[in-house]
Design a protein around this nucleic acid. Structure first.
Length: 717
DNA sequence: TCACAGTCTCCTAGGAGATC
DNA sequence: GATCTCCTAGGAGACTGTGA
């Protein structure tokens, strides 16, 4: 028997242990099970002379003894489809923690001498690193093309052990793999077969540059110590297994750009937990070595940086240290910024407690709070909100106006509430517009995304005056019913009574004064729902596409330092909404009787105009004539500016920016417009089809709205 | 060739609620 | 109370890619 083969069998396989031998050829698999290890070595030695055999392997871990009966102490050549080999479920215990270090090369060829040497060197480095951590000396072997490290373990074959071994390999891969050599992370499964040392590795043709080599054990400790699970867990914990939480990195720092901007060289990059791991060309933490440093950016933006050398923390998080090294003074600025933010927030909360006007405080309120009251008293809050919105979303101003007035309607006691629906094709920015405007809303007052039919009734922390945003989905019948209730009974909670398991009644509620913002695809939702909402169209024009692209191009040029996550305007808007959400205002429209409506057939439209006026007046409540009613309600008188602003919105919603009265989508409206332009007889036909007079047909044609405002009025207090 | 991981789709069971 | 519908989670199976 070959000495090295005999040494391997003695070393790897416990006496009496059943083991599967598997030989791979280009086309076939030969396999047998052995508990007679002398016989195993004899048959393997014979098989190894077969030049078609690329490699001979054994199962490393303890195999179920029953499998011996499959092919007892014999190798069956050319397995058929019915001949099973060892699966993970056939393994009784894990006996080895195997580390396979392979040179990076094209598949199907043996390694060159240089590549082979690199893998052996890398194995030495890994063994040394693990020894620093407390690992014993491993069995080191030459696999023929790369190198192997084997540590004796004793773990049950279960999911936890599998995950632990897998994680350890992943950590070693991150720490040690580079462009030339990689640690194979696929060797974690229990039934994994392993090169039987003493046999020849024959990948591809045997050429001088890439010769076939015999695998062999290079070194083995006299007594092999078992590595305990604690040590493996210690290794597994060397790197974050999940993206770490990081508020700071959500600011949009792009690690690759940051490294490049600061002249930090990257020797290689690869994916890690969905993010990217950059191996640094030189260690920025120590001058004692060059290799080993790395930085990872996770999908959530968080960053982990470190170095695998024990003297550099052995992979521990050192990102803040790295950043501070290249951005001196930043930590201090950050601390100052956070102190200021905490102070602002504390003052804002204190002022929220039962106040209508700003308190005459000897200490100055925070900057944005002062600005908020300044704008509410003397400025134009609507203009500020539109400007803050425009900083983050290009165009769609009329939609923005609708959203602002919708939120303002929550503060109006005598309003039915204004809800917003926006239609248009996917990808045109409906959801983006909603999300950007929602940034002005305090977090506790918004619900985003999709919900199942009854879920809203069961949300325990859903606050009154929340904004419920439904995202680009088709509205189910059930949600549409809730919407109808919400819009019909704005000032009361929506109740829903169900029967529990013990057949008692349970009453669930959606709180009062919630407004809905619905992003819909074309042609979804029924008219009754649409009737109750401000019906906007997203701007789908090619001009808008060009403007969006231009804005995107500017944004992509920003570096992290010039990127502002929250502008002063945005913070001021949020402070304004905090003030308004504390108010309940009764708006009086003293000129109500002087408003003339062209179309009152849909009774909801006058309501909507009145609500728009009231909402605008609520937004400017500090600049309007006020009185307090007997029950203490703050009353505000709407003025001509409120009418004018509301009328502008309503006119646009019936013209170029929405289908408020017609309930048509943009495409339907464009089609009618086309018919109208092409031939007036076409309009007559449409009117006939609709069973309406030609004038009615004209009215639903957008071109006519442009020339005729829907309301006449003589306004003024 | 085989086993496995990962991904995706489809199907099914079970629970909740509605209806008769 | 029986039955139906809707929703959800989970499993099965097909498929692909990888590595021995």
């Amino acid at each position: 028997m070959d000495d090295s083969l005999h040494q391997a069998v003695t070393l790897l396989i416990a006496p009496g242990q059943v083991v599967e031998v598997r030989a791979l050829t280009d086309q076939w698999i030969h396999s047998g099970y052995f508990d007679d290890h002398e016989e195993l070595a004899r048959q393997v030695a014979a098989l190894d002379t077969d030049q078609s055999v690329e490699g001979i392997y054994v199962t490393l871990n303890e195999v179920n003894r029953a499998l011996l009966s499959r092919r007892a102490n014999r190798i069956k050549m050319r397995l058929g489809k019915k001949d099973a080999t060892t699966s993970d479920a056939d393994i009784l215990r894990r006996r080895w923690f195997p580390i396979d270090i392979d040179p990076v090369r094209p598949s199907g060829v043996s390694s060159s001498d240089a590549e082979h040497e690199l893998a052996l060197t890398k194995a030495g480095a890994i063994a040394a690193w693990l020894k620093e951590m407390g690992f014993p000396d491993p069995v080191m072997a030459d696999s023929g093309n790369g190198s192997h490290l084997l540590y004796r373990i004793d773990l049950p074959n279960d999911e936890m052990s599998s995950a632990l071994v897998k994680r350890c390999l992943e950590v070693l891969d991150v720490m040690f793999s580079d462009r030339q050599v990689s640690v194979d992370t696929a060797n974690f499964n229990a039934a994994r077969i392993w090169k039987l040392y003493g046999t020849v590795s024959r990948k591809g043709d045997n050429t001088p540059d890439r010769p076939h080599r015999q695998s062999r054990v290079l070194s083995a400790p006299p007594a092999i110590e078992t590595v305990g699970p604690d040590l493996l867990q210690h290794l597994a914990a060397r790197l974050p297994a999940y993206p770490p939480e990081s508020k700071e990195e959500k600011s949009g720092l792009v690690l690759s750009r940051w490294l490049s901007d600061h002249g930090i060289g990257v020797s290689s990059e690869k994916s890690y937990l969905g993010g990217t791991l950059y191996s640094l060309a030189e260690c920025p933490f120590s001058s004692a070595h060059r290799d080993g440093a790395f930085a990872i950016q996770f999908p959530n933006g968080a960053i982990h940086a470190g170095c695998h050398h024990a003297s550099c923390g052995g992979g521990q998080q050192r990102w803040q240290e790295l950043r501070a090294k290249y951005e001196p003074g930043r930590a201090e600025q950050r601390e100052q910024h956070e102190r200021s933010w905490r102070r602002d927030r504390a003052v804002t909360r204190a002022e929220q407690e039962g106040r209508v006007a700003p308190p005459a405080s000897s200490s100055p309120p925070p900057e944005h709070q002062v600005k908020a009251f300044e704008v509410l008293r003397n400025g134009d809050p609507l203009a500020l909100m539109l400007a803050a919105f425009a900083q983050e979303h290009v165009g769609d101003e009329i939609l923005a106006r609708c959203m602002v007035l919708s939120m303002a309607s929550q503060a109006v006691k005598n309003s039915d509430g204004l809800h917003v629906s926006v239609t248009g094709d996917s990808g045109k920015g409906k959801t983006h517009a909603f999300r950007k405007m929602l940034r002005q809303v305090p977090d506790r007052l918004k619900v985003k995304g999709t919900v199942s039919n009854k879920a809203l009734y069961y949300m325990k922390d859903l606050a009154p005056r929340s904004v419920l945003m439904s995202d680009d989905t088709e509205l189910s019948d059930s949600i549409q019913e809730i919407l109808k209730s919400a819009t019909s009974n704005f000032n009361e909670p929506i109740t829903h009574t169900t029967v529990t398991k013990d057949l008692s009644c349970r009453v669930c509620r959606i709180p009062e004064r919630c407004v809905w913002w619905i992003a819909k695809k074309e042609g979804t939702g029924d008219d009754q729902v649409m009737n109750r909402m401000l019906t906007c169209w997203i701007d789908e024009s090619s001009d808008q596409d060009a403007r969006v692209l231009a804005a995107k191009q500017v944004r992509e040029m920003l570096d992290p330092d010039s990127f502002v996550e929250e502008s002063d305007e945005l913070r001021t808007c949020r402070a304004i909404w905090e003030v308004l959400h504390e108010q309940t205002i009764w708006v009086i429209i003293p000129y109500s009787k002087r408003i003339r409506f062209n179309a009152i057939c849909n009774r909801r439209n006058p309501d909507m105009l009145y609500d728009l006026i009231k909402s605008h007046a609520a937004l400017f409540f500090m600049q309007r004539q006020q009185k307090t009613s007997e029950d203490g309600t703050l009353c505000v008188y709407a003025n001509e500016a409120d009418f004018s602003a509301a009328n502008d919105v309503f006119t646009l919603l019936n013209g170029t920016a929405g289908g408020q009265e017609s309930k048509m989508t943009k495409k339907e409206s464009d089609l009618l417009s086309l018919i109208h332009r092409a031939d007036r007889s076409g309009l007559t036909s449409v009117s006939t089809e609709l069973s309406k007079a030609t004038t009615a047909g004209e009215r639903i044609t957008p071109g006519c709205w442009k020339s005729a405002r829907p309301f006449h009025s003589r306004t003024g207090p």
